[in-house]
């Protein structure tokens, strides 16, 4: 299920503005990799190049290679739609479909991609909601609107929706930044469980969170506003937080940044 991501020489542009420059890294399967760095250094942009969501933005353009095991996501003839079925995404703000019930939200990815038998769908929905640690809270209100849940529940609903289509990789862009500490903890626990099955990449502004949930940490930085963001270093999380090899990383982590 989980697959390795191998990025080499990746540049991403908004129109003529280069947002990230020459990024190369490897993300191991069944691990959690955290992206940290100051705002505007291109973490979200880079994350979105990993499932070809970057090109959804008008003017968005990517150069370079992203290998998912042995397939190049940017190879000729690759369909971005099928890439996104392999690489799921959870956004910063919970965004359940407002016209759909809890059940329909989780089933959305499958239903919108083809037809499923009711019984099979029921199973998948239950499994995904259990996988997102949400089942017990919503099992009595599956037919209520998804937007009626609390913020933390909505975000877990979005995670359930993403894992229902059984992707190989799960990308999360600051999934907890709109949530209270309790919900954040619930999601962090969940990430620990999900990494048994998925390759997980998470952007976070919270150092403790990166230290708590991730196996590897990548630090991004940018020279100045208007300059492209770069990968400064990627290493085991423990090393990054105890003894990083680049001074800038240490400055950022210890709060001496800027």
């Amino acid at each position: 299920m989980a697959k390795r991501i191998d990025v080499s020489g990746l540049n991403a542009y908004y129109g003529s503005f280069r947002a990230i420059e020459d990024i190369s890294m490897t993300v191991e399967p069944r691990s959690v990799t955290a992206f940290i760095g100051p705002s505007g250094c291109g973490k979200s942009t880079f994350l979105r190049t990993l499932n070809r969501m970057h090109e959804v933005t008008p003017g968005g353009r990517v150069e370079g290679k992203v290998m998912l095991d042995d397939e190049n996501l940017y190879g000729a003839g690759v369909d971005p739609v099928s890439v996104r079925r392999e690489v799921g995404m959870v956004f910063q703000r919970p965004n359940p479909f407002p016209t759909m019930s809890v059940y329909d939200n989780v089933a959305a990815g499958l239903r919108l991609n083809g037809s499923y038998k009711k019984a099979a769908l029921d199973d998948i929905v239950e499994k995904s909601l259990k996988g997102a640690n949400l089942w017990n809270e919503v099992k009595d209100r599956l037919n209520k609107p998804g937007s009626g849940l609390s913020g933390g529940q909505q975000q877990r609903l979005c995670i359930a929706r993403a894992i229902a289509v059984e992707p190989n990789v799960l990308l999360m862009d600051e999934p907890c930044s709109a949530l209270d500490p309790i919900s954040t903890l619930a999601i962090e626990d969940l990430i620990g469980e999900l990494k048994e099955r998925f390759t997980i990449v998470i952007v976070t502004h919270n150092m403790q969170q990166a230290a708590r949930v991730s196996d590897r940490t990548a630090f991004f930085n940018l020279a100045a506003v208007g300059q492209p963001g770069k990968l400064i270093e990627i290493d085991d999380t423990e090393r990054i937080f105890s003894n990083p090899s680049v001074q800038a990383t240490e400055d950022y982590i210890s709060g001496r940044f800027g």
């Binding site: 499932n51 969501m53 959804v56 739609v81 099928s82 890439v83 996104r84 079925r85 392999e86 799921g88 995404m89 956004f91 703000r93 965004n95 479909f97 407002p98 016209t99 959305a108 990815g109 239903r111 919108l112 991609n113 979005c158 929706r161 993403a162 289509v165």
Partner: peptide, 27 residues
């Protein structure tokens, strides 16, 4: 219709026309 909903649908691997038909229009 918030762009986030379109992106949420794209990220599930739903093609654009289906996204419009099943997510954007109903909203």
């Amino acid at each position: 219709v918030p762009n986030e909903l379109r992106e949420a649908s794209f990220a599930l691997g739903v093609p654009k026309w289906r996204t419009i038909l099943k997510v954007v229009l109903p909203t």
